[in-house]
């Protein structure tokens, strides 16, 4: 039962991740790619890892995956922010009207 729920969560998370990859290929300007991908990717990553925790059952495996999840949630915003800030500081703009 729990394993089945885990499989369902994994499939759902893979769907989210696939949407992120689809959007990184589809969208045409850098800032919408930066906003969409990394974020949808975060949701997909979290869901997939929670599914893996349910599949593996209650043991040290689950605790290690939880640690991976926490570390990743702490470090992903850093890299996304660094990339977006770098592009912004170099003067890469997409639209004239606003600030972007």
């Amino acid at each position: 039962m729990i394993v089945g729920a885990g499989y369902a969560l994994i499939a759902f998370g893979l769907f989210f991740t696939a949407t992120g990859v689809y959007s990184v290929l589809k969208f045409q300007d850098f800032y919408s790619r930066a906003v969409i991908t990394s974020k949808v990717d975060t949701v997909g990553f979290t869901t997939v890892l929670i599914g893996a925790m349910l599949v593996s059952g209650a043991n040290f495996f689950t605790l290690k995956i939880a640690l991976i999840l926490v570390f990743e949630l702490l470090t992903t915003p850093l890299s996304t922010h660094a990339i977006a800030h770098s592009a912004y500081a170099a003067g890469y703009k997409v639209r004239r009207s606003g600030d972007v």
Partner: peptide
């Protein structure tokens, strides 16, 4: 707060300056 805003889908913090945050917003 900036970290949480970046982690939430749809917004990315560009720069912080004192109490001002510069945010890219997907649905402006």
């Amino acid at each position: 707060l900036a970290n949480s805003i970046t982690l939430t889908p749809g917004t990315v913090t560009l720069a912080t300056e004192g109490r001002k945050l510069l945010v890219i917003w997907i649905n402006c």
